[in-house]
Design a protein around this nucleic acid. Structure first.
Length: 830
RNA sequence: GCCGAAGUGGCGGAAUUGGUAGACGCGCUAGAUUCAGGAUCUAGUGGGGGUUAUCCCCGUGGGAGUUCGAAUCUCCCCUUCGGCACCA
């Protein structure tokens, strides 16, 4: 019988669908388990990254199902986004048509992989039935003050013709098209993610099932700093400049102040000081510089404004400088400069000949301004700090803040690097923001009963990439929900990351037309037990989803604090050491591979070639190896089918049969050890590569056993062999579901293998009765002996003494020490 | 600069708690089968030595250390990848 994979795979997939074995009745589920892979953007066709992502998820879902869990394993489409619009401009296809055609094609591709999805829960985020609820959330968030509009300097990408969130700007370039990001002033809507900064940060500590790497990235992104905000009055003027510092302990070391070129007072302070021209030039030069040029290790530069601030404690005059390294977006846009204890201030002071004043003395050395070559940023004892002299600097932080608060000159403050999430996009293919602008009433939310605000279908696309929505009068021309007067509908759409921030919850109740989330059902299934996806979403998607979950909790839609209990970030699929990409021409197309070798082979290769979190190097040879293994397994069963189908076995019978037959016992032992190992590898570590190699070893042993023509004649042999083969099939079922399912049927089983319970190893059968013990002399291996399992030190030592090679080393020598590790090793120190 | 991860044969990788380094797979070598190729099967495969033995030495990026024993723990250094990056 030939291994006709395409026929087998088609047949099995049809069977699974007909029997509906992966459809979940979520309400009656007793043992819920939610396994989710990041849903794809319908770009056109699936790539190897998807294949890897979904293969990993499928193993987990199928394994859990066999373990007796009711597994929620859904799939859907992150269907809004720019490529659809670009296709519309380039090829004249409507974004909706383009998107839905891609979805249809990619769905058949996924189905061809034999993934165990409950397709009845499929979601496309561009469906008004989905984004309607998102618009509802927007309005409810607005009611709670979690959404606001402001004229804001936004990151604008000229090529994409839209605004980008901070998270979407990388080194001053657009994350999507790598073109220069410029600043623009626009009315924009923001989600107040900063309101949750503290909870998002402290929540990281509770995410035990997340990779440390992702948590670190999130913590850094949130960027909490504890310090103080201190008021520095400007000399002879009304204004007060607030600075933020994490080092209030160095307050007495302030010798000048630096403010950002964007600071509202930058030009003001220079007026009439004789420095006006200089400052103006400096600020203009800075503003003209591209955002990308302001990044990196540019030389620290600045100019004196001619004005002075007054030190809040000492009353000293503090010259105010405009400096290129001070960011307006962080803190207050002004910093107190302490050159002795801050490297940047130190460099700046050296360059412009400003005084340096030491106020923190390290414990093990003395530093002085004259011979310092760099700032001392470490700990120490306060000096030159008036009444605070002699305090440890950590202690001084608290004391100085307390003092400032009492004097009304400052206060303790925490700042975050995290910015509010700008969600306005000047694009067509996204969820409309449910707002109506009225001249009289301002920005008014659409009435909830009028939702969804649907995207108009008949639109013309401008080759410039500009959104067509402001051109469509029938869309924007409306009346104010409040006063009924003429009004203009918001024509911006929401960032597509909004859709992906809550889809995992909607999967639980996609059939509910009355409300976005059915709390009872959602609470039963959330958090997602296992989430799987690429590391590239470490910040954006995963942080937004965490934020949204907390918002939905506070809006009363669900009860959990965090969306994803465990997170697995899979590595990339590489070819020739580089990420697969069209430009590099190293793309391997999943379709080609599946046609040539079948889905089982592709899945097996991907799971076997590397553990999931590591990058995976694609190897055509490796794929052939995986295919060879499946063929061997196929032959092993089909070539002995007659004998196997005639054979029956029971557990009790097997243990009796094996009692006196060393050979059979060894096979059975391997079978049960393999069950144990595979279970542990999948359950505890998701190391599918070692799980597969363990089954390969078992299959190798079965093949070897079949070489012994004498043994092949006994009934006992076939009973043991059948158990071994069936265990192999069950253990491999999550990875290569089609071929194992087919073979399972051929062996005469009525039930599908995917519905079988996961095998349990028999402790007695797995137990070895003799073990190989390594004999070391002074830590070097000098021999191996076979000893009964569980033998004590004396017994093993006795046996070891009879080994000639061991004897050679211990003869005539004094034995100083003997170390014995049960069933493993004996080390004799002479 | 800071943070994180990693470095093991020709290659992908294994060694889960400090206990036989190199499982499993690829590749390679030899043999069997075959007109030939492919496929399949058998044996071998870290390096060196060798009296060919159930042998010896070296070997997990480099150097030191702890230990009876280190790929694994500690310290220092090197390299690669990823993230953040003038964050006050």
């Amino acid at each position: 019988m030939k291994y006709n994979f395409s026929q087998i795979e088609e047949k099995q997939q049809k069977l699974w669908e007909e029997k509906g074995i992966f459809r979940l009745d979520d309400r009656n589920a007793k043992h819920p388990y939610y396994c989710l892979e990041m849903f794809p953007y319908p770009s056109g066709r699936i790539h190897m990254g998807h294949v890897r992502n979904y293969s990993i998820g499928d193993v987990i879902a199928r394994y859990k199902k066999m373990q007796g869990f009711d597994v929620l394993h859904p799939m859907g489409w992150d269907a809004f986004g720019l490529p659809a619009e670009n296709a519309a401009i380039k090829h004249g296809i409507h974004p909706a048509k383009w998107t839905y055609e891609n979805i249809d094609y990619m769905r058949t591709q996924l189905k061809r992989m034999g993934l165990s999805y409950d397709w009845s829960r499929e979601i496309a985020t561009c469906d008004p039935k989905y984004y309607k609820w998102e618009q509802l959330f927007f309005i409810e968030m607005l009611e709670r003050g979690l959404v606001y509009m402001k004229k804001a300097k936004v990151n604008w990408c000229e090529s994409c013709q839209t605004v980008l969130a901070n998270e979407q700007v990388e080194d001053g370039l657009c994350w999507r098209c790598d073109s220069e990001v410029v600043e623009r002033e626009l009315d924009s809507w923001f989600f107040k993610i900063t309101e949750y900064a503290e909870e998002l940060l402290s929540g990281c500590d509770k995410l035990k099932g997340w990779p440390e790497k992702v948590l670190t990235m999130q913590r850094n992104w949130i960027g909490k700093s504890v310090g103080a905000e201190i008021d520095f009055p400007v000399k002879d003027r009304q204004e007060v400049i607030k600075v933020f510092t994490t080092r209030p302990d160095t307050l007495f070391g302030v010798t000048f102040m630096s403010i950002s070129p964007e600071h509202p007072l930058a030009l003001e302070l220079a007026k009439g000081t004789g420095h006006e021209e200089e400052v103006k030039k400096f600020v203009e030069r800075w503003k003209a510089a591209l955002k990308s040029e302001r990044y990196g290790q540019t030389e620290k530069e600045g100019v004196f404004t001619g004005s002075y601030a007054v030190h809040p404690v000492t009353g000293e005059d503090i010259p105010i400088y405009v400096a290129n390294f001070v960011l307006m977006e962080y803190g207050t846009g002004a910093v107190m400069a302490v050159p002795a204890h801050d490297q940047r201030d130190f460099e700046f002071a050296k360059k412009y000949g400003l005084p340096i004043k030491v106020v923190i003395m390290p414990k093990d050395k003395t530093i002085s301004p004259e011979d310092m070559e760099e700032a001392w940023e470490g700990p120490g004892i306060l000096v030159n700090s008036g009444r605070f002299d002699g305090l440890d600097n950590q202690e001084a932080k608290k004391k100085i803040v307390e003092f400032l608060e009492k004097e009304g000159k400052g206060k303790g403050k925490v700042t975050y690097r995290l910015r509010d999430w700008g969600i306005s996009r000047q694009r067509y293919w996204g969820a409309p923001i449910p707002i109506i602008h009225c001249e009289k009433c301002g920005a008014v939310p659409v009435k909830k009963e009028d939702l969804p605000v649907e995207l108009p279908f008949d639109v013309e696309f401008d080759p410039s990439g500009r959104s067509p929505l402001p051109q469509i009068e029938s869309f924007w021309k409306t009346t104010c929900p409040k006063c009924g007067g003429p009004a203009r509908r918001e024509t911006d759409t929401m960032d597509t990351f909004v859709e992906s921030s809550w889809y995992f919850a909607r999967y639980v109740c996609p059939d509910d037309d009355t409300k976005p989330l059915d709390k009872e059902r959602v609470d039963k299934w959330l958090p997602v037990d296992q989430y799987i996806g690429g590391i590239e979403h470490a910040i954006l998607h995963l942080l937004y989803s965490r934020f949204f979950t907390k918002v939905l909790r506070d809006l009363g839609y669900l009860s959990v604090d965090e969306p994803f209990d465990r997170l697995l970030t899979q590595g990339m699929v590489l070819k020739d050491g580089a990420k697969m990409s069209k430009s590099k021409g190293n793309v391997v197309d999943p379709n080609t591979m599946i046609e040539r070798y079948g889905a089982d082979t592709v899945r097996l290769f991907i799971l076997f070639a590397a553990p999931p979190e590591r990058d995976l190097e694609w190897s055509d040879r490796g794929v052939e190896g995986a295919h060879r293994f499946i063929q061997r397994l196929w032959r092993l069963v089909t070539e002995n089918l007659d004998r196997l189908t005639k054979t029956d076995y029971s557990k009790e019978e097997l243990s009796t049969l094996c009692k006196d037959n060393k050979r059979l016992k060894a096979i059975r032992q391997k079978t049960h050890q393999t069950i144990k190992k595979v279970t542990e590898d999948i359950e505890e570590r998701y190391h599918f590569n070692t799980a597969i190699s363990a089954v390969m070893e078992l299959v190798n042993e079965i093949s070897a056993a079949l070489q012994d023509k004498k043994a092949v004649n006994t009934d006992a042999f076939w009973k043991v062999l059948k158990e071994a083969l069936e265990a192999s099939l069950l253990l491999l079922c999550p990875m290569i579901p089609h071929v194992t399912s087919e073979l399972w049927q051929l062996l005469g089983h009525d039930r599908l293998i995917a519905q079988e319970p996961w095998p349990k190893h028999d402790k007695d059968a797995a137990k070895k009765d003799s073990v190989v013990i390594v004999i070391q002399i002074k830590g070097k291996v000098r021999g191996k002996i076979e000893a009964p399992a569980g033998a004590d030190q004396e017994e093993v030592f006795d046996l070891a003494k009879h080994e000639p090679n061991v004897l050679k080393y211990i003869e005539g020598k004094e034995i100083r020490k003997v170390i014995y590790v049960q069933d493993r090793l004996l080390n004799i120190v002479v």
